[in-house]
């Protein structure tokens, strides 16, 4: 559905080099620290940043050749970009109505009412939660096939985040051909909603796996300095030095459970996994 093929973008002190695939019916997460390259990847997907190499294909067509009519199929939330905040919600509605053939005015108004977003208020006058919601409602208010969402839940409380995630689940349920690619600093949101996850670090995809595999097959091996040298490292992805010895990231938890029954092996969430990757050394 959406393919990022060997895309390279070079900056003075940073090089992005990513490949990703978004499949129909799936929600794909992109996680990484600030400056890891998430927003640039999203902008390349949307044709906002011109890559130095590689290409982005949407339904087999290069994003460069994507016509205006094709953009009806894409809805997006950008972390740093939206309509001028001086505009009122009702004005935003008329702009969207004139921009998208498939704009669903009824849905837009209904959702604004549901989240108590006043049509007569300027975007700048909305609370942080309302601003985030209006961005998501905007992305969902036309008949899109792909949603590209950069930090849609950023800065929100748990209730607002849950409401936005529920909107995304509803969106997916309406058509099994739809798909979403989403980034978030809040790894629990990604764990809850995504089918597969890409982890990006310093402009490179360092891990890609199903969410279930990441949460249940990946684990932290905690071992002392003496035992580290003799450790079977064939399934160790990254190592981080700790005061007690080493913390090793593996994607074959069962292998170590079976072969090293005395070893301390801990399940981990996405945050803990990323910490080993960022603070440690990749093997």
């Amino acid at each position: 559905m959406l393919e990022v093929k060997n895309v390279v973008k070079k900056y003075k002190n940073f090089t992005l080099n990513v490949s990703m695939e978004l499949k129909p019916g799936m929600i794909t997460g992109l996680v990484g620290a600030n400056g890891a390259g998430k927003s640039t990847t999203f902008k390349i997907m949307l044709g906002l940043v011109n890559p130095d190499g590689g290409e982005v294909l949407i339904n087999g067509m290069s994003v460069k050749a994507y016509k205006n009519s094709g953009k009806e199929d894409i809805g997006c939330v950008l972390a740093d970009s939206f309509f001028p905040d001086i505009l009122k919600i009702k004005e935003l509605k008329s702009i969207l109505k004139a921009s998208y053939k498939s704009f669903d005015e009824e849905y837009f108004v209904k959702k604004c009412e549901e989240y108590e977003i006043p049509m007569d208020k300027k975007i700048s006058e909305l609370s942080g939660g309302m601003k985030a919601k209006i961005r998501v409602i905007t992305a969902l208010s036309h008949d899109s096939k792909i949603l590209i969402l950069d930090e849609p839940t950023s800065g929100l409380d748990v209730v607002s985040r849950e409401e936005i995630l529920a909107e995304l689940r509803d969106y997916m349920e309406k058509d099994e051909e739809r798909s979403i690619v989403i980034s978030s600093h809040i790894s629990s949101d990604i764990e809850k909603i995504c089918d597969d996850i890409y982890v990006i670090n310093n402009g490179e995809i360092v891990i890609h796996d199903d969410t279930d595999t990441l949460l249940f097959e990946y684990a932290a091996l905690k071992i002392s300095d003496e035992n580290y040298e003799s450790l079977d490292k064939q399934y160790v992805i990254a190592v981080r030095k700790e005061s007690y010895g080493y913390e090793c990231l593996t994607d074959k938890k069962d292998y170590y459970l079976e072969n090293f029954p005395d070893m301390v092996i801990e399940k981990m969430n996405l945050d803990e996994l990323m910490l080993i990757l960022y603070k440690g050394e990749k093997l």
Partner: peptide, 21 residues
């Protein structure tokens, strides 16, 4: 200026609008 203040140009280019438009 308004387009620039909210980086609106980027968002507009994700709607059915080309750079040429």
């Amino acid at each position: 200026g308004y387009d620039e203040r909210n980086n609106t140009i980027a968002y507009l280019l994700t709607t059915p609008v080309s750079r040429r438009d």
